[in-house]
């Protein structure tokens, strides 16, 4: 059972079950806990090879026991996500913890990843359960629906879930090269039905400079 203590610490109450968490993110626990490094994020040999090949590195540990365990990472804000059979796409650096029952994997993001400076691949979390996301400042959850598509700056994007198509739109014109660009040259457009998580801060991306 995931709950937030303040907005920057995640408390997980466990009764013999397990959670997967970012390696080294435990800050305290009471009761009996065992920490086990998960090679390849618990995705098996195939998962390990995929992660190594795609560069979407993620070091996770499995925490199992009875009691409460607290997690935090560099005072980043934590956001809880409930998954009911749908798929969450998140950058591996923004994933703090998931229920052990959720499957994690890697997927191709296409050109969006390249504009974000995060590589061409992203992490997926699938199944029924809870996940905790990290963001720089509290994330804003925006709904995407058929009549309201959403456009997001690649630097502020952290995750999305649901049945959403993403496409890349570029505002690069000859003016960009003259130093008179709009400053928002690369954008990701989301269409369909789902949720997009954005943080009130922008990572450094190649798009930030044009």
């Amino acid at each position: 059972m995931f709950r937030l203590q303040g907005s920057k610490v995640l408390a997980v109450d466990m009764t013999g079950d397990a959670v997967k968490a970012k390696n080294g993110s435990m800050v305290a626990y009471d009761g009996q806990m065992a920490f086990k490094k998960l090679s390849g994020g618990g995705e098996g040999i195939r998962g390990m090879v995929t992660r190594r090949l795609t560069g979407e590195q993620m070091t996770m540990m499995e925490v199992k026991g009875h009691g409460t365990c607290w997690f935090a990472d560099r005072a980043s804000e934590i956001n809880l996500v409930n998954l009911q059979g749908d798929k969450l796409y998140v950058e591996s650096s923004n994933l703090l913890a998931t229920d052990a029952g959720l499957r994690t994997g890697t997927s191709f993001t296409g050109v969006r990843g390249a504009s974000q400076g995060n590589g061409l691949f992203t992490t997926t979390v699938e199944g029924h359960g809870q996940a905790a996301l990290l963001s720089d400042g509290p994330a804003v959850v925006l709904r995407v629906s058929a009549q309201f598509p959403l456009v997001v700056d690649p630097g502020a994007y952290i995750a999305h879930q649901g049945n959403v198509r993403q496409s890349f739109q570029s505002g690069v014109t000859f003016r960009t090269f003259m130093g008179e660009g709009g400053g928002e040259a690369f954008q990701i457009r989301f269409e369909g039905d789902g949720l997009v998580y954005v943080q009130p801060s922008e990572r450094n991306t190649i798009a930030g400079d044009v």
């Binding site: 956001n79 809880l80 996500v81 409930n82 009911q84 749908d86 400042g137 509290p138 994330a139 804003v140 959850v141 925006l142 709904r143 629906s145 309201f148 879930q161 649901g162 049945n163 039905d193 789902g194 949720l195 998580y197 009130p200 801060s201």
Partner: peptide
């Protein structure tokens, strides 16, 4: 439309976003 109960405290769409006001302390 699919619903995502508990998927974070507030889910915003164009109708619920404020007009020229703060969404939270860090977002306008």
């Amino acid at each position: 439309m699919t619903t995502y109960p508990g998927a974070g405290p507030v889910i915003h769409d164009p109708a619920t976003l404020p007009s020229d006001d703060n969404v939270n302390a860090y977002t306008f």
